[in-house]
Design a protein around this nucleic acid. Structure first.
Lengths: 153, 153
DNA sequence: GTTGAAATGAAAGTCCA
DNA sequence: TGGACTTTCATTTCAAC
């Protein structure tokens, strides 16, 4: 390893950018796009994985064709203490995509995708029954999503 | 198309589940895991893409090795009208990952990843200078993320 | 959806700067 | 040491069933 710090040069950034756009690129094509040979780019990708900068490769799934017309963020306030019951519920509950423990007025921030407002109402009812207070923001549009994370300048 | 509704059978769901976990699987290996031949699974994936259920393939990048220790949600309230300036700013501003237009108290919900609290303070200062009011929730931990979206029962 | 053949891409070892 | 070439092997793709 040339240095202990995980510094990304312009090539690594280009590689991440291309993979972010399409992670199913062949190494040959990826190399062509960033100006490297296939073995060279393969080695760089391997190092990015080894350094745990690249955690894995996933698929972007649209929620609407799956019958999930409504996306919402729900700020959840529990009754004073951090409740592991919420996490267990979120893990099992269909439609809950993310659960973040946060600072501020709410203890947790949920991201959900549901078929309609009725389903959202049902879900909020469950949270209230569990003793939580909810602050719901329905997503109207998403002008920005999936932007690549690059090292600070 | 056998039906106008985009209904996913158990095989499609298995395919999405496997691709969600690792989108760089070979079609042969993917087929082996879901119990299909390579051409069959290739055709199913092609249909999922065509139906815009699969939007693309991306890479999961860890923010911490890139020097992004802080993730936060920022509820942004503008001065009455929906401001396209915020979207333009969010698109250009380093560290802003998502921007959703939402209902409720805030007009937009941002997700950001930054090196430290100082960078967060700087970013919030920019928003205030632009005339926005911010409600910030710093992410302490993320017990749930990247859960697969399946059709409602 | 499956099987088999031809073309394409990936991986490993070797050589060179 | 890190990148480029070549061979070998796996994978994709197309055709026929």
């Amino acid at each position: 390893m040339k240095s202990s710090g995980q510094t990304l040069d312009a090539l690594d950034q280009s590689i991440l950018q291309e993979l972010q756009q399409d992670s199913r690129l062949s190494m040959r094509e990826l190399g062509r796009r960033v100006g490297l040979s296939a073995p060279a780019v393969t080695e760089r990708v391997r190092r990015l994985e080894e350094a745990r900068i690249v955690l894995g490769y996933g698929v972007r799934v649209s929620s609407k064709p799956l019958g999930r017309s409504i996306t919402a963020f729900i700020g959840v306030k529990d009754s004073g203490r951090n409740d592991p019951a919420l996490v267990r519920w979120a893990r099992e509950r269909d439609g809950v995509l993310e659960c973040h423990s946060v600072t501020g007025d709410n203890s947790c921030m949920l991201k959900v995708a549901l078929p309609d407002v009725a389903a959202l109402e049902t879900l909020l009812g469950e949270l209230i029954d569990l003793g939580f207070t909810c602050d719901t923001s329905i997503v109207l549009s998403t002008p920005l999503e999936g932007k690549l994370l690059l090292p600070p300048a």
